[in-house]
């Protein structure tokens, strides 16, 4: 199953994703979709590097259903991280779109 690398930004805790250009982006839609195990390992190395540079905290991979747009995480936990609290649509990323 395809995956995405995520973490929280050190400074403000914001949920971020690794994009294909190596940037850490706030929107899941801009995240790089990782198709192979080798890509996943490479992404984790980038994550550890970013942890060392005080950019992010705790990088890990999670699974997404890649049916094109929009990208949807398999687990509810990641759905909520990508959007914000389901009980407060005025908060989190969902409030910005």
């Amino acid at each position: 199953m395809p995956q995405v690398l995520t973490a929280n930004r050190l400074l403000d805790g914001e949920v971020v994703y690794l994009a294909s250009d190596g940037a850490w982006v706030e929107e899941l839609a801009s995240a790089a979709v990782i198709a192979t195990k080798a890509e996943g390992e490479a992404a984790l190395v980038t994550g550890i590097e970013a942890e060392r540079n005080q950019k992010i905290v705790h990088a890990y991979l999670f699974e997404v259903i890649d049916t094109g747009v929009p990208l949807r995480p398999v687990k509810q936990r990641e759905v909520i991280r990508a959007a914000g609290p389901t009980v407060r649509s005025d908060l989190g990323k969902q409030a910005r779109s």
Binding site: N8, D12, G13, E14, V57, H58, R77, I80, P85, G92
Partner: peptide
């Protein structure tokens, strides 16, 4: 840092600290 911040009530949760 984690044990130090926890001793001061600071967690890292899903969306933020």
């Amino acid at each position: 840092f984690k044990p130090l911040r926890l001793m001061n009530g600071l967690y890292l949760q899903l969306h933020a600290y």
